[in-house]
């Protein structure tokens, strides 16, 4: 039985804890600044859950540490907790968090441990799908990510914030920033999500994909949004966040060369984002515990795991990937 520390028991952290306790029979140690929430989650998990009221970044005795709390502090938390030597799995999708976590690569290598960056729905499942799809190509030239839906309140706030901020795209070997809310594109997600208008936003997927795929010319990420979302993205949130959003989806479009011919492959998945993120994080934790991560250092799942084995484990937890069979419209813009 492994001991897994989970810092932050919001929608994703609680789902992850549930998976680890019920499916994997692990012991979980929970930390959160919200004591009432902590009590409620621990009580619902039973005797395998233990509350730890220490500071969030205080040393912790665990086989793996998961960062699932509020955004924009993950890099500092990981920096403080790395000294303990346990692998760290970070679930966030904030661009500054991902940048900060990737910057810990050298330190993690020196310590001989791993920081899994972006182990959620997107990034996370998107990276695994990209790595899985890439096996069909001789050379992957473009990866375009799209996501729809939000998990808990923190995810909804992050969605709102990122739509109003500049997207970071990889284009012909250089990073480019584009205005958030621009670049409307109709993306077809797995049913029942279907067609959604998607826009550029401050999303971290390209930062994780570019190091994983040599020869990648373009990497972009978009999110589904309504016109009202775009209009209000630069304002404070005008209404309270919902406890949890409805079904969401991710879509990964790969373009490249296969047998000398240009080819396109579209993969995706549909689920409640917090549920899927909890399952992805749980599989990432199992990979870390079982020593199945490819290397030490800080990187995304596309670099760290065997995508086929990861998707098989994920399917066993009810999160199933899908592929789009049929003609895909040609892409003209960025």
């Amino acid at each position: 039985m492994a001991r897994v520390a989970i810092i932050g028991v919001g929608a994703v952290g609680a789902r992850l804890a549930r998976q680890l306790v019920s499916t994997d029979a692990d012991e979980v140690v929970l930390r959160d600044v919200d004591r009432a929430r902590l009590d409620m989650v621990a009580q619902s998990l039973g005797e395998r859950a233990r509350i730890d009221t220490a500071e969030l970044t205080a040393p912790i005795d665990a086989d793996v540490v998961v960062l699932a709390g509020r955004a924009r502090v993950h890099a500092d938390q990981a920096d403080a907790l790395l000294a303990g030597g346990a692998p760290i799995v970070a679930v966030g999708d904030d661009l500054s968090d991902v940048r900060g976590l990737l910057a810990l690569d050298r330190r993690a290598r020196q310590l001989g441990t791993t920081v899994v960056v972006g182990a959620g729905f997107a990034p996370g499942l998107t990276c695994v799908l990209a790595a899985h799809g890439a096996r069909r190509f001789d050379l992957v030239e473009e990866i375009h990510i799209a996501k729809a839906g939000t998990g808990g309140p923190a995810c909804a706030r992050q969605h709102h914030r990122s739509l109003g901020r500049a997207a970071v795209d990889w284009r012909d070997g250089a990073w480019e920033t584009r205005p958030g809310g621009s670049g409307r594109e109709l993306c077809w997600f797995p049913e029942p999500i279907g067609a959604q208008d998607c826009y550029r936003a401050e999303l971290p997927d390209p930062l994780l994909l570019v190091p994983a795929f040599a020869g990648l010319r373009r990497a972009t990420s978009r999110m589904a949004a309504t016109r009202r979302d775009r209009l209000t993205a630069r304002l404070p949130m005008l209404w309270p966040t919902h406890p949890e959003g409805g079904p969401g989806a991710v879509r990964v479009e790969l373009r490249g060369q296969r047998d000398g011919v240009r080819d396109t492959l579209v993969l995706g998945a549909m689920d409640r984002p917090a549920v899927a993120a909890g399952a992805v994080a749980a599989v990432a934790v199992r990979f870390a515990i079982e020593g199945r991560l490819h290397r030490s250092g800080a990187a995304g799942l596309a670099e760290l795991v065997d995508p086929l084995a990861f998707l098989q484990d994920l399917a066993a937890r009810g999160v199933r990937a899908a592929t789009f069979d049929g003609a895909v419209a040609s892409r003209s813009g960025g």
């Binding site: 809310g181 621009s182 670049g183 409307r184 594109e185 109709l186 993306c187 077809w188 067609a195 208008d197 826009y199 789009f324 049929g326 003609a327 895909v328 419209a329 003209s332 813009g333």
Partner: peptide
């Protein structure tokens, strides 16, 4: 703003 897209045929 944005060019939209073409649904799969």
């Amino acid at each position: 703003r944005g060019s939209g897209g073409v649904p799969p045929q």
